Deep mutational scan, measured.
Amino acid sequence: TTITITINGEELRIRGDHEEIHKILKAWEEDHNDEEIVRLIRELAER
Results as ranks from 00 to 15, higher is better:
45 A>Q: 09
12 L>M: 09
29 E>G: 09
5 I>C: 02
6 T>K: 13
12 L>A: 03
7 I>P: 00
15 R>D: 10
4 T>Q: 05
5 I>Q: 00
40 L>E: 04
4 T>H: 08
6 T>F: 10
29 E>W: 10
45 A>I: 15
14 I>D: 00
22 H>I: 09
11 E>T: 13
30 E>H: 08
23 K>A: 11
19 E>N: 11
21 I>G: 01
37 I>S: 02
36 E>A: 14
28 W>Q: 02
34 D>R: 11
4 T>G: 03
38 V>F: 04
37 I>D: 00
9 G>H: 04
8 N>T: 03
20 E>F: 14
20 E>M: 13
28 W>R: 01
26 K>I: 10
17 D>F: 11
6 T>P: 02
33 N>G: 10
41 I>T: 01
36 E>Y: 12
18 H>Y: 15
24 I>G: 01
3 I>N: 02
47 R>E: 09
24 I>D: 00
16 G>T: 07
30 E>L: 08
2 T>D: 09
33 N>E: 10
39 R>Y: 01
5 I>L: 04
34 D>K: 13
13 R>S: 12
42 R>D: 03
22 H>C: 13
13 R>C: 06
39 R>E: 07
26 K>M: 12
46 E>W: 03
39 R>K: 10
1 T>I: 15
32 H>R: 12
11 E>N: 13
23 K>W: 04
44 L>T: 02
30 E>N: 12
25 L>I: 12
18 H>W: 13
24 I>W: 03
14 I>A: 03
13 R>H: 14
24 I>V: 04
42 R>F: 04
13 R>T: 15
6 T>D: 04
20 E>I: 12
31 D>T: 10
14 I>L: 12
11 E>I: 14
22 H>P: 00
23 K>C: 02
22 H>Y: 07
12 L>T: 04
8 N>F: 07
23 K>F: 04
43 E>D: 08
19 E>R: 10
14 I>T: 01
31 D>C: 08
19 E>K: 14
40 L>R: 14
26 K>A: 13
38 V>W: 04
21 I>M: 13
11 E>K: 15
16 G>H: 03
28 W>V: 03
42 R>I: 14
9 G>I: 03
38 V>R: 07
37 I>M: 07
46 E>P: 02
17 D>V: 07
20 E>V: 12
4 T>A: 07
32 H>P: 15
39 R>A: 09
23 K>T: 06
24 I>A: 03
40 L>A: 12
47 R>S: 11
25 L>A: 05
34 D>E: 11
43 E>A: 06
30 E>P: 06
32 H>K: 15
37 I>Y: 07
5 I>M: 02
20 E>S: 14
20 E>K: 07
28 W>M: 11
1 T>N: 12
10 E>F: 04
13 R>E: 14
28 W>G: 01
28 W>F: 13
40 L>G: 02
5 I>Y: 00
29 E>I: 11
10 E>N: 09
30 E>I: 08
45 A>R: 05
8 N>Y: 05
36 E>S: 09
37 I>L: 15
45 A>V: 12
45 A>P: 01
40 L>K: 15
30 E>M: 07
12 L>K: 03
28 W>L: 14
7 I>E: 00
31 D>P: 04
13 R>D: 05
5 I>K: 00
10 E>A: 06
24 I>P: 00
10 E>S: 05
25 L>Y: 04
20 E>W: 12
26 K>W: 04
32 H>D: 08
13 R>A: 07
11 E>A: 13
11 E>H: 15
9 G>D: 05
38 V>Q: 12
46 E>G: 06
34 D>F: 15
39 R>P: 00
21 I>W: 06
32 H>M: 15
6 T>W: 08
22 H>R: 10
6 T>E: 06
20 E>T: 14
35 E>V: 14
36 E>C: 03
15 R>A: 15
37 I>H: 02
42 R>L: 12
42 R>E: 07
31 D>A: 11
36 E>I: 11
38 V>C: 04
4 T>Y: 05
28 W>N: 01
36 E>P: 03
9 G>K: 04
34 D>A: 15
45 A>T: 08
24 I>S: 01
15 R>C: 12
41 I>E: 00
27 A>N: 06
3 I>Q: 03
3 I>H: 07
24 I>H: 02
3 I>G: 02
28 W>E: 00
23 K>Y: 03
27 A>L: 15
32 H>N: 13
30 E>D: 10
32 H>E: 10
40 L>H: 06
15 R>H: 15
29 E>N: 06
40 L>D: 02
33 N>L: 15
8 N>H: 08
37 I>E: 01
23 K>I: 07
21 I>Y: 03
39 R>S: 08
34 D>W: 15
19 E>L: 08
7 I>G: 00
42 R>N: 08
14 I>V: 07
10 E>Q: 12
44 L>G: 01
25 L>P: 00
30 E>F: 06
32 H>I: 09
47 R>G: 09
35 E>W: 09
45 A>N: 13
10 E>W: 03
6 T>N: 14
29 E>R: 04
